[in-house]
Simulated scan of single mutants.
Amino acid sequence: MLRCVVQEHPKLWDELLGQAEFAYNSMTNRSTGRSPFSIVYTKNPNHTVDLAVLPKCHSKSATDFTAQFSSMLEEVRAKLLESNAKYKEQADKSRRERSFKPGDLVMIRVRRERFPPGTYSKLSKRKIGPYAVLKQINPNAYVIDLPKHYNTTSTFNIGDLAAYHPPDTAITSLSSSDSDSSVDGGE
């Protein structure tokens, strides 16, 4: 948002930060259906147009105000719970339950930040292994029997582990009629 506000004058970001914050706090949030200003201050802020005409003052009792504010907060809570339930439902569609037992073989996804500088190459394998699971710390963390030469901790998140499936042991044979090239060099 700040990038859009500063446009061709990026060095003026500190002068425009207040405007960006005001704009963000005035916008209606898709999860709550209200702006942050209306949630915190019970009303939207006055804009230049609002200040031209002074609002009429009506005296209301404190109990009416409290009831209105409480009902608004309950409405916001309900909308947030509904929105979170929708997000969870979408996320659960692609989620699979995985777990490993000690002794299971796993492949480890290699991440650059896990290894000391200079030891990771973009061209190296994306997964290493197979290595045995030593123990489960919790449903998301496992200790792997990782060789010492990797110079990294042997505890991994389940997101970086994949079950090892050995390669197929079937014998593959090609006959000369199956290949496109001939023995004589393509003549």
Rank of each mutant, 00 (worst) to 15 (best):
M1Y: 04
M1N: 03
L2M: 09
L2Q: 10
V6C: 04
E8Y: 09
K11F: 02
L12K: 10
L12A: 12
D14G: 04
G33P: 00
R34M: 06
R34S: 07
S38A: 05
S38R: 11
T42S: 14
N44W: 04
N44R: 03
D50M: 04
L51Q: 04
V53H: 04
L54P: 08
A67E: 11
M72H: 05
L80W: 08
E82A: 07
A85R: 06
Y87L: 05
K88F: 09
R98G: 04
K101T: 05
V106H: 00
M107P: 00
I108N: 00
R112P: 07
E113W: 03
R114N: 13
Y120M: 08
Y120W: 12
L123T: 15
K127Y: 12
K127V: 10
K127Q: 13
I128M: 08
V133Y: 07
N138W: 05
L146A: 00
Y150Q: 06
N151Q: 03
T152M: 00
F156H: 02
G159P: 01
A163G: 08
A163K: 07
H165T: 12
H165G: 02
D168P: 11
S173N: 15
D178Y: 05
S179R: 15
D180Y: 15
S181V: 03
V183T: 15
V183Q: 10
D184V: 12
E187H: 15
